[in-house]
Amino acid sequence: MQDEPTPQELLTAVAGWLRNELMPVAPADKVFHVRVAANAIDLALRQLAQAGQGDAAERGRLVALLGQDGDLATLNGALAAGIASGAVNADDPAVIDHLYAATLEKLAVDQPAYAAYRRAAGLEGGKARG
């Protein structure tokens, strides 16, 4: 067993240091990159916090839709190929529901401030971007 602080705590500290300590004194042409670096750590933290919950939900839906089992990459490949070939009916509301759900699960990690995400996820109000 590894000692603490946890990876999450370490990354949170780094992101805070980038924003609060480095950004105010960074040269003008580096401020943007410091912000991007802090945002990247935040993204990684959101993905770690999710701990595969979204993946499990997505896999469950894919198994039901496709009637086959496999890992997430295989199932997504099968859905993509099925939509491309027409073997999966892309007009089926269950397929569309799944695509919305999977996309919102991704955006919750990737870009939770994106305005179209916030509206689709029913999170409007508060700070939005993008």
Binding site: H33, V36, A37, N39, A40, L43, I96, L99, Y100, T103, L104, K106, L107, D110, Q111, Y114, A116, Y117, A120, G130
Partner: peptide
Amino acid sequence: VERAMIARRASETEIDLLNLIAPR
């Protein structure tokens, strides 16, 4: 890092595409 973070914006276009193709 900027390059890597742009790759994680593809999902923005996925919600935009769903809104255009299968609007709710």
